[in-house]
Simulated assay, not measured.
Amino acid sequence: MGNEKQKISALIELNDELENYFQNTIIPQLFVDADFVLRKFTPPAMKQFRLRPDDIGRPLAEIKDNFRFPSILENIQHVIETGEILEKEIQTTDMSWFQMNIIPYVMIREKKTNGVIITFVDITSRIRELKDQESLILEHELLLDTISHDIKTPLTSLGLTIEMLKKIPEKGMDKFPVLLEKVENSLFKIKDIIMDLTESRRSDQHYQARAELLDVEQILEDVRLTLAPQILESTAKISWEVQQSELFFVRRKLRSILYNLIGNSIKYRYNGRIPEIKIKTYVDEDYTVFTITDNGRGIAEWDQEKIFTKYERISRDVEGTGVGLHLVKEFVYLSGGRIEVESKLGKGTQFKLYFKNHNH
């Protein structure tokens, strides 16, 4: 009789210790038995998952929606059947992240799993920090790609202008001041790019270009001036119809997008055909749409996805790095937009860019 009392006393003491542990731990924890009945939970679990004292003794299936994690019952079943500890990162329907550990509760004497203890550690802030770091790395990669690509722009213009200068006969020196101005503009452009990079490095904050309300025609005119040597050399005709004159976007990025697309229309012109490039802007529901249409070589249907892949080039007879259209896609998609391409070989290409309209 004395031994029986000692056993009962020991069980009460163990139960008190377990109860004390569950009441004082700062981590959301659940104890679910082998029949999937909720037996205990910690106060943080009550707060996090909106549990009530009368949920104790209820089948977990009746309150599984509280945990906002659809496969929790299947995960518990797996641990009970295998006796293995399950560790996984989960995202609940309220967009929170947890490190979830499901540990088998083993009855040592019977060597039987009699339930599980589930621990939830909130890792939402850590996941957000990782995502911020990934975004920062991507932003810096794009910055480096943009700077290297943008420096090539005035260098190419500079090279073309110098070639023109070499071909000027002595009697044609009246063109010299105009060409000299283009050389000077190219040098100023290189200087501006380097200054932008220097300022971003000096800043205590991470490099982050800011969106602003842009005058579309002003940006197009800026791009036209930047491409002046290529336009002159190819005798390209560029026209635009601006129905939507303003766009809230990053100036450098929009300029780079238009420079790449218009520049490519000149670069990949059809042999013996004067390049004709038409730009149009308009509003389509929640988007400002830009269309850039040319009469160039066109792109084969099987190559139309490849053109946006970094370093991928489908034509080797003209100079290029395979970075320009990759940057165009990244800039548009990261802002919540999209790109569509329609093209026929020998006829020309149309790029249709959808820029999400944001409140500012």
Rank of each mutant, 00 (worst) to 15 (best):
R224T: 14
P104T: 02
I299S: 04
I117E: 00
I292F: 06
P275T: 10
K191N: 12
V79N: 03
I127W: 02
K237Y: 02
F36N: 13
G346R: 10
T321P: 03
F120K: 04
S315M: 06
I72R: 00
M195Y: 02
V250I: 15
H149D: 14
S234Y: 12
E301Q: 12
N260S: 15
F248A: 08
L254S: 11
F36P: 02
Q244Y: 01
K112D: 10
L325G: 01
N260G: 09
V106C: 05
M173I: 04
Q99N: 13
I137T: 08
L160E: 11
K175C: 02
K131G: 03
T42C: 01
I168Q: 09
R39Y: 05
Q23E: 14
N260F: 05
G83I: 12
N20F: 00
T153I: 14
L254I: 15
S335Y: 12
D196K: 13
F355S: 09
T124N: 11
R316E: 09
G320S: 14
N66E: 08
E330S: 14
D222A: 11
I72C: 01
A211C: 02
Y105V: 05
I12R: 15
E199T: 08
D284Y: 08
I190N: 07
R109L: 06
I339L: 11
R316P: 01
K111M: 09
L60E: 08
I72H: 01
L180R: 12
E199I: 05
T153P: 01
E134H: 08
Q91V: 10
E312R: 11
A61H: 09
V283W: 00
E129W: 08
A10L: 15
A10R: 11
S245C: 07
I76E: 01
L179T: 07
L227V: 12
G172A: 06
S96T: 07
R252P: 00
R255Q: 15
E62T: 06
L187S: 09
L60H: 04
F98K: 03
L214Y: 07
A300T: 04
G57Q: 12
D174F: 11
G348P: 06
I108E: 15
N260D: 15
L130D: 14
R52P: 00
W302D: 11
I103T: 15
P28C: 01
E285I: 02
E87W: 05
H360F: 09
M100N: 03
D303R: 10
Q6E: 15
V216G: 04
V116L: 00
R224H: 14
F249K: 13
F355W: 09
M173F: 00
D174C: 00
R273C: 11
E305F: 11
E246G: 02
Q304K: 15
I63H: 04
P104H: 04
K40Q: 10
G57W: 04
V289R: 12
R109E: 12
F188M: 10
E301Y: 10
I257K: 10
D196S: 10
D16P: 00
T349C: 05
D122V: 04
Q77M: 07
L136T: 13
E62A: 09
I90D: 07
N114E: 14
Y287V: 10
K167E: 06
E4Q: 15
L214A: 13
